[in-house]
Design a protein around this nucleic acid. Sequence first.
DNA 1: GCCCAGGTCTCCG
DNA 2: CGGAGACCTGGG
Length: 328
Amino acid sequence: MKIGFEIDPKEYKGPFNLDLTINSGQTSQPAWLMKDGYFQELLRFDNKLCLIKIQQENVEGTLNIEAETEADLELESIRTKLMDIFSLNDDLNDFYDFLRKDSELKPTIDFCSGLRLFKAHDPFECIISSISSANCSIIRWNRSIRDIKSKWGEEYNSNSNSWYTFPSPDILKNVPEHDLEEMDRCETNLPDDHSFEKNLKSCGVGYRAKFMIKTAEIVQNQINIDAIHKMSYNNAFETMLDLPGVGPKVADCILFYGFGFKEAFPVDVWIGRIVSEMYFQGKEIKPLKAREFGMKKFANRAGYVQLYMFHYARKSGLLDRIRQLNKS
DNA sequence: GCCCAGGTCTCCG
DNA sequence: CGGAGACCTGGG
């Protein structure tokens, strides 16, 4: 079954730039695949798979969506899900009014018009990919997530292309950590030169493999994803910190990108340096101090400010200047 | 071959 | 509580 529909700019407040939103390097989810002029991703609704293709003909124009599914899905639930993923219910005009009142932030608007929070479609995937992103390059953890999906995810075929979901906590918690464990669990005798590739370390996640398996176990047994949504930010933050491999930066990313907590202000080394340049005359500021500063100053807009700060720094040359400073 | 980047964990004071 | 060093891997 194929459903085609549109989302009109009148349905949301302020600008939206799909390409910018998907490709601005927001952590915690690999960018959607670009193919035949459409961004594409396999989504899960309850237990139904649905391949989404989405395009925007011109910047800030109408969105064209094609949804392909073998299940019986309501158009409205697909529309609602996409509105959520691309944060189309956020009022960017209101946010820009706020930015204009801060002389440091005002210039970010020109570089980021239509940039919105790109939310994860699966909170558990977001938790695991955030763990894999810690102390790791973007290309590397993107590849890891793709590997994990193709090894243990559910397969969906469309036009001879294979798509995979991210495996559930129940599946991931039982995955072998490394090749030795995979070999031990193997029932049959294999040739001496057999390479063991269905284990987490073979996905290039390194020492994070055991964190991920343990986290999957805890999420499966002790965490209710819906309950997180209803928690206060601080409670949700503390809950995330209890997961192995999750420190303050990763917890903030999970809460912002995975759960949509707008008061999160995730601070990596770059945001730390940007904050220090923009607000502390280049004086070094510790990550937790920068986090505290951002949360206090920007309150429920902290996540968006972090998004805009980083993209602005990249495009304006600020980031290059900071790089130079750190070399000398 | 060597060194570096990048958050979290662990250990030590 | 804060600081120092180890951790896996890919890229320069």
